[in-house]
């Protein structure tokens, strides 16, 4: 890896905007994906823009029911957040499975999303929260639904000179439950073979009023499963309906063979993963009701 590269270190978002205006730099923070990528020759040595000191971008807060998470929030921050434990337990569960303590102390939510791996652990929970992502470029801000943010493996809608400021979602309300499940090849430091997140809200008679389902590692990007959602909405929850929802979800995925698993195994596992997260989300909703 060569070290002949310019390095910028803005301390504020104003400084960051200035830097990005004058140079097409690569934004780095935790470096947990960037550095290995550079070593494999997969990332070019653009000028580096280190934003790890831009404290303005590191926050977890809630305003009027809207939860906002700054891009520099680490996975460890997510795991330790009381607010998120209440408002988005599935996201906390997911963050706890990322890598290991060392990588969780450095890896950021913004980095996880910008890296846009189809296996990004934070994506399925955020997708079922119907999260939006706030992007900033110079003085222009735009927000994009997270489901429209990913374009393909390693590809997002981020324009040159644009950075992620925050991710936001509305705190779920009513009788709701949320869960995340990740299937890895070992218990520690596991990259997901299949991951799934579900958010379920029950209506007055216990029927499913809202259901959102998302899957990771089974398509070119993390995806929502419309088929599972449509199948379940308005129905009475049951293990059998969840099993069928799992089958319905298979229509929304296009898994590939890779070093971790075959498409066939992913297909088999995705259906069950959907079932599991639905059961867990339902159980949580039931507990909330009491």
């Amino acid at each position: 890896m060569q070290h002949d590269v310019d390095f910028y270190r803005p301390n504020t978002t104003v400084e960051l905007a200035e830097v990005l205006q004058k140079t097409a730099g690569r934004i780095v923070a935790g470096c947990t994906d960037v550095l290995p990528g550079m070593r494999r020759g997969k990332a070019s040595m653009d000028p580096l823009v280190d934003i790890s000191q831009v404290q303005e971008l590191r926050f977890i807060r809630e305003e009027n029911g809207r939860v906002q998470i700054g891009a520099l929030t680490t996975h460890a921050d997510l795991v330790g957040s009381q607010l998120l434990n209440g408002a988005a337990p599935g996201l906390v569960e997911a963050a706890a499975t990322v890598g290991c303590p060392q990588t969780r102390n450095r890896g950021t939510l913004g980095g996880n999303l910008a890296n846009a791996s189809p296996a990004a652990d934070s994506a399925p929970p955020l997708l079922v929260l119907d999260a939006g992502i706030q992007l900033v470029r110079g003085s222009t801000r735009r927000s994009v639904p997270l489901k429209d943010f990913f374009r393909g493996p390693g590809q997002t809608v981020l324009a040159s000179g644009e950075y992620i400021e925050q991710v936001f979602f509305d705190r779920p309300s009513g009788t709701w439950g949320m869960s995340f499940f990740k299937l890895g090849k070992r218990s520690g430091m596991a990259i997901s073979v299949v991951s799934a997140a579900a958010l379920l809200a029950l209506g007055p008679e216990g029927r499913i009023q809202t259901v959102r389902m998302a899957l990771g590692s089974v398509a070119a990007t993390p995806v929502r499963s419309r088929n599972a959602e449509e199948f379940l909405t308005g129905t009475a929850p049951s293990p059998e309906s969840f099993r069928k929802a799992g089958q319905a979800a298979l229509q929304d995925i296009s898994p590939i063979d890779d070093i971790r698993a075959s498409a066939e195994y992913r297909r088999h596992s995705a259906g069950i993963a959907v079932q599991r997260v639905l059961e867990e989300a339902w159980a949580q909703a039931a507990r909330r009701k009491i």
Partner: peptide, 22 residues
């Protein structure tokens, strides 16, 4: 690659892989 932890140090009190820190 941050896969083994043999380079672990405490950075501002938190364990990190020093191979992944610039």
């Amino acid at each position: 690659e941050g896969e083994c932890g043999a380079c672990t140090v405490l950075l501002n009190g938190l364990p990190v892989n020093s191979c992944l820190v610039m």
